[in-house]
Write a protein that binds this DNA or RNA. Structure first.
Lengths: 208, 208
DNA sequence: CCATCAATGTGAACAGCTCTAACTATGTTA
DNA sequence: TAACATAGTTAGAGCTGTTCACATTGATGG
C-alpha cells in the first residue's frame, strides 16, 4: 500500500510527478518506440492514476514535446562538449560535433526522431525551434572560428548548413539500418571526417 | 443500400478491396500523417466494415508496410526518370536524382518518413530493404557512369553514399521545416548542386 | 490554531481504436 | 447442384487518451 519510493510527504501528493513522467516517457520511448509508448504505461511506471498527468500536461503530445525539447538541449551540450576536446575552429573540432550528433541519434533513436518530427508537436513548434537554434549555434560558431569570422554571417551559414545536412542524413540512415545495404558497410566516423573535409571551404582557416 | 461505386457484381464481394485500402491509406496518411491514420477511417473510406481488411492484411502495420514499399518503388522510378533528362554520368544527371529524391519527400512527406522508419515494419524489413536497394541502384549506376566504372565496385559505393546521405538529410530537414531556421533560407536545388560537386571525386569522368 | 483555497491526486466513464471469433453471403468448380 | 474457398458481416474484448466530478493535501491569512 505504502509507496516504496524515497520518503514521501503524503504518498498522495507525489512530489515531482511532472519530472517523473518526463523521465518515464523518455525510457519507455527508447524501449518501445514513440508509438509503443502509452500514457497509461507512464502512469503505471510512476504509480499514479491515468488522469493524473493531465494536471501537468495538456495532452500526450504535450508530454512528448517536453521530451523532445529536453533531447534538443542535451544534444547541444554534447556537441559543445565534444568540440571542446579539440583545437577550436578546426576540421577536427567540427567533425567532433558531427560525431556527437550521430552518436546521440544512435544512442537515443526514438527521442532523436521525436526531436525532429515537427508534425508531432503542432502548436509548440516555435518553442522547439528556439531550443533547436540554440544547439545549431554550436556548429555555427565552430564554423565561424574555422573561417575566421567574428559573427554568424551569411557565409558562415552557407558553409555550415551542408554539414548539418550531412550528419542529419547520416543519423537517419544509421538508425534506420541503412549503413550496410551494400556489401561495403559504412564507417561512421570516417564518413563524417571525409564529408567535413569536402564540404568545408578548402584550406584551413580560409575566408570562404 | 446499393453501393454507389462502379457497378459491382454483388456489392458484397468488393472487387479490389486490397488495392482500394492501400490507396485509401496513402491519401489518408498524406492528409493526416501516419499517426492520424486509422484502419477504421480507411474502412469508412472504402465502404466496408472494420473487420474486412484483416482478410487482406495481417495488421495495420502490414498495410503501412505495403504503402512504404509502393513509395520506395515510385521513388526509384522518379529518380531514373529525372536522370534520363540529362547527359548520363554527369554532375547534372546525378544532382537530378538528388532533386527527385528531395521532391518526393516534400510532395509526400508522411509516406517518405514511413518508407524509412524501419521500426514500423518489423518482420518485413528485409522485403523493404530489397525494394530500397532497387532504387538505390539508380544512383549507384549513375555514379559508376560518372567515374567510368563498368560495375558497382567498392569505390563507386564509397563515392555514392555521401550523396545519398546528403539528399536524405536535406529531405528530412525540408519536411521538418528546418530550411529557414536562420535568416538565410536554403535553396534546395542550389544546395544539391553544390553538395554534389563537392562530394563527388574531383574532375569530370575521374577514376576516383 | 483553524478555515479556506489552490494544487494535485482519484475513480468512473466515454468514445474510438485494433484485432478476433463466429457467422453469412458469394463465386467457382466437380 | 453440392461443396468449398473466398471475402464479406456483426458483436465484442481489451486497449487507448481524455474528461468529469470528487477527494486529499500544503500553504496562507485571520
Amino acid at each position: 500500500m505504502a509507496r516504496n519510493k524515497v520518503q514521501k510527504k503524503s504518498a498522495y501528493h507525489h512530489g515531482d510527478l511532472r519530472g517523473q513522467l518526463i523521465s518515464a516517457a523518455r525510457s519507455l520511448i527508447e524501449e518501445h518506440g514513440p508509438d509503443g509508448f502509452s500514457m497509461s504505461d507512464a502512469c503505471r511506471l510512476a504509480g499514479v492514476s491515468t488522469a493524473a498527468p493531465y494536471r501537468h500536461f495538456a495532452s500526450k503530445q504535450d508530454l512528448l514535446t517536453e521530451v523532445a525539447k529536453d533531447g534538443l538541449q542535451r544534444l547541444g551540450v554534447e556537441m559543445e562538449d565534444n568540440a571542446s576536446e579539440f583545437t577550436r575552429g578546426t576540421v577536427d573540432s567540427i567533425s567532433a560535433i558531427g560525431r556527437a550528433y550521430v552518436n546521440f541519434a544512435i544512442r537515443e533513436p526514438h527521442t532523436f526522431r521525436l526531436m525532429f518530427s515537427t508534425r508531432a508537436h503542432s502548436g509548440r513548434i516555435e518553442e522547439l525551434r528556439e531550443v533547436g537554434r540554440g544547439s545549431y549555434g554550436v556548429l555555427l560558431r565552430e564554423v565561424a572560428r574555422y573561417t575566421g569570422e567574428a559573427d554568424i554571417t551569411e557565409s558562415v551559414i552557407r558553409n555550415a548548413f551542408p554539414l548539418w545536412t550531412q550528419v542529419h542524413g547520416l543519423s537517419f540512415l544509421a538508425i534506420d539500418g541503412k549503413l550496410d545495404v551494400t556489401a561495403f558497410p559504412v564507417d561512421i566516423d570516417e564518413s563524417i571526417l571525409i564529408a567535413t573535409e569536402r564540404l568545408l571551404p578548402p584550406g584551413s582557416q580560409a575566408k570562404a
